[in-house]
Computed example of a mutant assay.
Amino acid sequence: MVRIESPAVNPDRLAQIASLAAGINPDGGALCAMEAVAFLAGEPVSDQPASAAPSLAAFIRTWSGGLTQAERDALILPLVPRLVGTRGSEALERRRVARVADWLVRTHLPAWFHLAKLNVEADELAGLPAILDIGDIATLCDHLKRARKRAAVANLTLRQTGSLVRAAAWDAAHRAAWVTVRDALEAAGPHVLAAGWDAAYAAAYAAARACGKAPLEPTRLTLRHSALALIEDLIAMREDAAPGADSPS
């Protein structure tokens, strides 16, 4: 197996990063999260550092940009030095993308179903087989289509609660996960991509169903902490893991 040597984090440069910008700053101000990764690795400053896993970069780039300054510095800044050297083989990258898809289907979606009191459906989704490869979603198409239909509400209700629902069900962590898996879903074919959209809309419909009956913010915050644990899992994945060793529980 070919080993990819990880660059060392420059401690002097690390001491210079006290805060993160929301996005690329062409005027030379604070660095965004992925620019900071490149800076620490001694690379030319870019938001697409060569030393970071593309899946992690996509997730962090999108998530960080959707947070407030305080949230970004509390959640993302401590992760920056740990992202240096995470780039690996295509096989490792595929496993990471599958892990993000698994989080969307078996963690993010059931959380909103539970809030909407669709507990039977939530437990069914959470109990689906782990997604170990993006192609596994093809076996879940019927489950996700049923979930979307079950959670659907009248269009008027969704329009009335639209901005509030999108701010919760499609917050920064969800958008980051979707950006991370989107290309892989498209490459896997239209049925798999459609299943991904079913999962995304089912979460929004479930949030709309719960809106006005239960507060949305606690679920959103719980999923934010879950997304942070997901990132920890992605960072910890290794090339030489035994088959199924990094399977989500």
Rank of each mutant, 00 (worst) to 15 (best):
K117Y: 15
A187W: 06
A138S: 09
S163E: 11
G127S: 10
L118R: 15
D136Q: 13
L109F: 04
D133Q: 12
T180S: 15
D171W: 03
G196S: 15
R175Y: 07
W170P: 00
A172H: 01
D133W: 09
A111W: 01
H108K: 14
A184M: 03
L158D: 04
V105P: 00
V179P: 02
S163H: 07
W112H: 02
D123H: 15
A199D: 00
D102L: 11
N119M: 11
L164C: 10
F113K: 01
V179A: 11
R182C: 09
V192T: 14
T107Y: 01
L193W: 07
R182A: 12
V153P: 05
V153T: 08
A154Q: 09
A130C: 07
A187K: 10
I137G: 04
A138N: 01
G189Y: 07
L115T: 06
T180R: 14
V120F: 12
D142V: 04
R148Q: 13
D171C: 06
E124D: 13
W178E: 04
R146G: 09
A101F: 03
A184I: 00
A194C: 05
R106C: 07
A126Y: 08
A154C: 06
R106E: 09
A111Q: 01
A168I: 11
G135K: 01
T139F: 13
D142R: 02
K149P: 05
